[in-house]
Simulated assay, not measured.
Amino acid sequence: MIYADNAATTRISDRAFEQMLPFLREQYGNASSQYSLGVKAKRAVEHARKQVAAAIGAEPSEITFTSGGSEANSWVLRCVAETYHNESIHIITSTIEHHSVLNACRALEQSGVEVTFLPVDNTGRVLVEDVKAAIKHNTKLVSIMLANNEIGTIQPITQIGAFLKGQDILFHTDAVQAVGHIPVDVDDLRVDFLTASAHKFNGAKGTGILYKRSGLNLPPLLFGGEQERGLRAGTENVAGIVSAGFAIEESISEMAEEAKRLRSMVEVTVEGIKEKIPSVRVNGDTKSCLPGTVNLGFNGISGESLMHLLDLKGICVSTSSACTSGKDEPSHVLLALGLSEQQAKSAIRISYGRYNTADEAKVIVKAVCDAYAKIIDNL
């Protein structure tokens, strides 16, 4: 099997797995317990908090662990709205956000919150000028993702953050696809909230990360005990948190070299497919993008059919976000780029990761070209 859908999830790294395993068996204490077994678990959680904070330029006290990126995104949006519930609220986001942001915003609209969904250009990039133009007297939050999960386009978060600095407007970025793959520093980005997820950078599933700038108030997500400084009640997922700490540390240490390798694999993939299928198009920004992700459109065929033929050959790619797979609907991201419904349905996403090789990229090129030819012959 060749797994090339790392934007959906990643294989846990050997080091992260080895480090978390004792906390599933020998060191299985509750991190809130006061005896030695619990104290060891608590120390492990706090060590992971330091590892995560160091990776994104934050302080450990600014990091809260959640069950995943979706939970963290929902927490920011819902609790900002709750904080200003007695006031008129306006939120700015984009049309290509992850559904955990889009659906949270749509739910808030039902409760009277005004939401502006900014368009993107044909590369999937939000224009800073559009953000500036959308600001209103009651704008409380801007939420723009750092890198898109379907096309890999990186957004101008630093420029947006610089514009918002000094204004009474909170700034959140969904960095789930970015953390561990490109440099991320919360001070450089000038964000108030940042969200991430361990399983996107070779950690275990079930552990999310919320960065909240020091001094900001955020109502608790869950009520109960005093875990996570009273912000998120419930027994901590110690093993998952430990995996997140070591996985992010490992990803950061290898980032520059890994990005160079992944970009080379994407280049080989695109050039190889274009040689046999000149009409193939790259959806998204080919320059300001994640190193291992490429979204390809094929005229006149179904991306889903192509995906299934590749699956029969033991190759895993996707047609859209894993959160929307199985629905016979075109990608909202690709439609936002200006593509037609048919063009949006003709696309596949290939996302390489740490455990892919250059030889696998060559295998994928041949498999895609063969599958495409088979579909065309049967039309």
Rank of each mutant, 00 (worst) to 15 (best):
I2G: 04
D5G: 15
T10W: 12
R11G: 05
I12F: 03
F23A: 02
Q27T: 04
Y28K: 12
G29N: 12
A31C: 12
S32T: 10
S33W: 12
Q34A: 12
K40M: 13
A41C: 14
A41T: 08
A44G: 11
E46S: 15
K50E: 15
A53W: 10
A54V: 06
A55W: 03
E62T: 11
T64Q: 01
S67K: 10
R78T: 15
V80Y: 05
A81T: 09
H85A: 06
N86Y: 09
E87W: 04
S88Y: 13
T95C: 04
T95E: 09
I96Y: 07
H98D: 09
H99V: 05
A104C: 04
A107I: 05
Q110E: 15
S111K: 11
G112R: 13
V115A: 05
P119N: 11
V131K: 01
A134S: 15
K140P: 04
K140R: 15
L141F: 02
T153H: 05
T153I: 07
P156C: 09
T158Y: 06
G161N: 03
A162G: 01
F163E: 04
G166P: 02
D174C: 15
A178R: 01
H181Q: 01
D185S: 02
V186W: 05
D192Y: 00
L194K: 08
L194P: 02
T195S: 13
A196W: 06
N202V: 01
G206W: 05
G208A: 07
S214P: 00
L218H: 10
P220G: 01
L221H: 12
G225M: 14
G225H: 13
R229Q: 07
G230R: 13
L231P: 05
G234V: 05
V242I: 01
E249H: 11
S251R: 14
S251H: 06
I252L: 10
S253C: 02
E254Q: 14
A259C: 05
R261N: 08
S264N: 11
V266N: 08
V268E: 11
E271M: 03
K274S: 07
K276T: 14
I277R: 08
V280G: 02
V282L: 15
T286Y: 08
T286N: 09
K287G: 04
C289M: 12
V294G: 06
G297D: 01
G300Q: 09
G300W: 07
C316D: 13
K327R: 06
D328V: 14
P330C: 12
V333C: 08
L335Y: 12
A336R: 02
E341W: 06
S351W: 01
Y352Q: 08
G353C: 09
G353V: 04
V363Y: 00
I364M: 10
I364V: 14
V365S: 06
A367H: 00
V368M: 01
I375Y: 08
